[in-house]
Design a protein around this nucleic acid. Structure first.
Lengths: 235, 235
DNA sequence: CGAGGCGTTGAATGGCCTCAACGATGGTGG
DNA sequence: CCACCATCGTTGAGGCCATTCAACGCCTCG
């Protein structure tokens, strides 16, 4: 289904980390002038399209990825073929941290929207982090963040009846409470995130629309009635 | 229900990390002779009894804990009171890593069996890790391990029907395939781990016993028919 | 001996899954 | 430009599985 793309086809340039527009929030935020001189391998940038894989579970982990824009899903599979989306990776997040320890990737990382990524060779990050404690701390923060996310997915998105799970997911997807909009995923992905079937996901979303908890704005965009959704969770 | 215990009551001595019997597998495995001199605060050891809390969600995170023996559950709560066990911490694992970043703990850490712990002040670990890259890597490994566990709990223990979840949990609890025994938890904890009710947990365990997939050995110990359990997962 | 905690079991309900059909949408090729 | 097909979302019917509420036995402990 999802085709792995030779990175060449998606290559979109060589990054200038010093000038990076995400510099504030990005892994390399704490780098000093002198550190940049130690980056010998160029940092490449890519653009990927929905359905393409950033990496696959089991691949030798030799690089990490900073998401500059877009969304990536991390997918794990059970022996019987069942799949579960374990986490989402958003703008300014780093994924593929396993590479830092020389371990193979543990998920399929599959792009859900057009996505720009920077590709950080594990060896480069290893070398830099040996001498720069700030980067060190920054790495721990990323790992902490991933773990918090993982725990939240378990308690919020895999607990209770389907309506509550969907409600919690929607509230999670709305970043700005003043402008409560979000982009919703395909029903299959919804199911894989919440541990329910695509039909149940579809039915519940449809029901929310009828109850005007959701208003469709076109092209997968929805307005969310956060207040009533929250009520639904406390009753 | 679970009472927080002033650590004084459980205090069982001051650790000599150099002579630690877990030295091989423990966080401080990579420490050099010279590093030990930098440990100014003593490393305290404690013994806790089932039901006691190592720490509580929201507590200021100022120390991390190495489990020397026993099992600790990490619990998260939903606003409506529902609770979920998100991970277990076993012998030689470290918990409370949040403290390293100065963040409050994110779970209740509650002891399930009589448990020995070492208490590592966050400041000590921070200081040591600034200068010792081995400890640095060791920390990343712990974090990686926690994250892998978290993902596995989601895909293996929170996916599919109750029977499969329990089967997967049992297989996970058996460490030695040649001697397939495990210690089983209370039904309430089982439910909280798997996202099912205590009744369903009880019913399923009882059914497994009737089918001789499980044989009770007394005091929560069970013999597990790993082969037939695995078959159950692939059909 | 009584009380409370824990595991088990029953009956009934309801929610979710399965299987199936159908409409809408969007991209492709004639 | 339109017919065609594939994909995706929706909806229905039926059945199973898990939940809910309840009762009961067992054990430990005060």
């Amino acid at each position: 289904m999802n085709i792995r793309v030779p990175f060449k086809e998606a290559w979109s340039g060589e990054a200038d980390c010093k000038q990076c527009t995400l510099r504030e929030s990005v892994l390399f935020a704490g780098l000093r002038e002198s550190d940049f001189e130690k980056i010998h391998h160029p940092i490449n940038q890519f653009v990927l399209q929905p359905g393409q894989a950033l990496y696959r579970a089991g691949d030798a982990g030799d690089r990490m990825f900073t998401i500059r824009s877009g969304v990536v899903k991390l997918v794990q599979y059970l022996p019987d073929g069942a799949q579960r989306i374990v986490r989402l990776v958003n703008t300014a997040d780093v994924t593929g941290l396993e590479a830092l320890l020389g371990k193979p990737y543990e998920h399929d990382a599959i792009v859900m929207q057009p996505t720009e990524v920077c590709c950080l060779p594990a060896s480069t990050v290893q070398a830099l982090s040996k001498e720069n404690p700030d980067l060190h701390v920054e790495l721990l923060k990323r790992w902490h963040r991933a773990l918090s996310e993982a725990d939240a997915w378990l308690t919020e998105l895999s607990t209770g009846p389907a309506r509550q799970r969907i409600a919690r997911l929607l509230l999670r997807l709305v970043h700005d409470d003043a402008n409560p909009e979000c982009i919703l995923f395909g029903r299959e992905d919804l199911g894989a995130m919440l541990g329910i079937t695509t039909e149940t996901a579809s039915r519940t979303i449809a029901e929310f629309k009828r109850q005007r908890l959701l208003t469709e704005l076109g092209s997968h965009r929805y307005r969310v009635d956060t207040r009533r959704l929250r009520e639904l969770l406390t009753d």
